[in-house]
Every structure is written in structure tokens, then in C-alpha cells.
């Protein structure tokens, strides 16, 4: 029986407008949702369980508001939902150390996560916890085949690498060709009643400090031309003004 963990994170819906108030992003009126790549991680975790047997535990880090994302994946069929209770800023060292502790405490054999979270875009968590645990890892996996050892594909400069890796391991998931399942009414009802296992954590002091969050510098307005013949003008501008061709 494989003990499977999947890391999920709540982030602003990718459609949302991001606003700044003072020198911080203001998310108070933004709709939150599961980070898109985490959906592929959850799907891989569930398929892993279905093909070899086991249990799937979804783990998130956040305050009580993050329970929503856990309920969402519970409705898809994960067995346990766990929240590491911490609402403040953590740097990558703090975040990875509390997750790695939880992975050891839970006795997991495999961790799935998204290739990066839609808020930071960093993609550090998967490989970072693997290093702390002394485990193998593959990042940006586009296809996973489940057996005693996993067979994982991921894109490289030279083409798609297909590697095998033994458990314990961490796999961070990209989109690939996997289709993610949707929850049904029964799952949603069950998830409503499910208990979130809330755990206290104490991350090490951060060495990274957020100084400010600002809007990206506005781009000067571009030039817009009507009609196909303007393509010639644009080609000329790419040479004379942009110095690209």
C-alpha cells in the first residue's frame, strides 16, 4: 500500500486582477482557487492510488481560508486532508522545512506537487523538499506511469526524457496529456462533512524579507495599424526601431 501525499495551494484565480494597496498586493476582493498545476498533481496522485492501491493525503499550508482548496480535492477522492496552520510569510527554507517534517511524520512514500504555484511561480517546493528528505525527484513531469518504480517523462533541451525512479520520490507535475477529473455531487456532499486535520507548525526564522510589492512598469503605448499592408511597415519597424531583424 503506497502512502501518497499531494501538495496543494490556494492562489488567486488566474482570471483575477491583482491590485496594490500601499506597498503590498491586496487580495481581499480576489477569488481564490487551487493553483492550476496542483490539479495535475492531484490527478496523478489519484491515478497512482487506483493503479497500485494506497491512500492519498492532500496537504496545504495556510490559514483557515485554505480549507476550501482541501475540501475541493476531497470531493475529487483524496482520503485525508491536512492543513499546516500558518498564515504569515515564509521563505522557501521555512516552507520546505515544515512540509518535509510533515512528510517524515506521515511516513509517505511519494509526494506529488504542481510544477510551480501560480502566485510565486517559483517551483522550488518539490525539488527542495526532496533534497531535504534525501529523495529522488523529477520536476515538470508531463506523464507518469505507476508501478513499483515510476516511469516519468519530462521535457529537456534535447527532447523528452523518460526516466525511472524508485520510491521514495517527489514528482512535480506539468500539464501533459493527463485529463483531470471533476467532482460530482456525492463527492461534494462528502467533502462538506470531512474534517480537516489541522496541525500547528513552527517554521525557522525567514532570511528573506519582502520589501515591497508593486505594479510592473507600464509599457509605453504601442503602435496600431489598420490593414494587412501595414505588415510591411511593421517589418521595417522591427528592423529600424527594435533592431531585431
Amino acid at each position: 500500500m503506497v502512502n501518497i501525499a499531494v501538495l496543494v495551494k490556494q492562489v488567486p484565480d488566474t482570471n483575477s486582477k491583482i491590485q496594490i494597496s500601499g506597498d503590498r498586493v491586496d487580495l481581499s476582493s480576489v477569488k481564490m482557487d487551487i493553483s492550476p498545476y496542483d490539479e495535475f498533481a492531484v490527478e496523478n496522485a489519484l491515478q497512482h492510488k487506483e493503479s497500485t492501491g494506497g491512500t492519498v493525503s492532500a496537504i496545504t499550508v495556510g490559514g483557515a481560508a485554505a480549507d476550501k482548496v482541501l475540501k475541493g480535492v476531497k470531493a475529487l477522492g483524496v482520503d485525508n486532508i491536512i492543513r499546516l496552520d500558518y498564515d504569515g510569510f515564509m521563505d522557501s527554507n521555512g516552507l520546505q522545512s515544515i512540509i518535509a517534517e510533515e512528510i517524515i511524520a506521515g511516513g509517505y512514500d511519494i509526494v506529488y506537487c504542481g510544477k510551480s504555484a501560480a502566485d510565486t511561480g517559483a517551483g522550488s517546493t518539490g525539488p527542495g523538499i526532496a533534497e531535504r528528505l534525501g529523495w529522488a525527484s523529477v520536476s515538470n513531469a508531463t506523464e507518469v506511469k505507476f508501478a513499483d518504480a515510476l516511469t516519468v517523462s519530462y521535457p529537456t533541451e534535447g527532447g523528452d526524457a523518460i526516466v525511472s525512479l524508485n520510491l521514495p520520490a517527489v514528482v512535480s507535475c506539468d500539464k501533459g496529456s493527463i485529463k483531470v477529473r471533476k467532482s460530482n455531487v456525492k463527492g461534494i456532499m462528502m467533502a462538506k462533512k470531512a474534517q480537516v486535520d489541522v496541525k500547528a507548525v513552527s517554521p525557522p526564522a525567514a532570511s528573506v524579507t519582502v520589501v515591497s510589492q508593486v505594479m510592473p512598469p507600464a509599457k509605453p503605448a504601442g503602435k496600431k495599424f489598420e490593414g494587412a499592408s501595414s505588415a510591411q511597415t511593421v517589418a521595417q519597424l522591427l528592423r529600424d526601431e527594435a533592431n531585431i531583424i
Binding site: P12, V25, T209, V210, S212, V214, M215, P216
Partner: peptide, 10 residues
């Protein structure tokens, strides 16, 4: 951050 919708300085 947020896919380039904002910039974070640390």
C-alpha cells in the same frame, strides 16, 4: 509574482 501581474522586491 502572480504571473507578472505584480513585482515583488525582497
Amino acid at each position: 509574482i502572480y504571473s507578472g501581474k505584480a513585482i515583488q522586491n525582497v
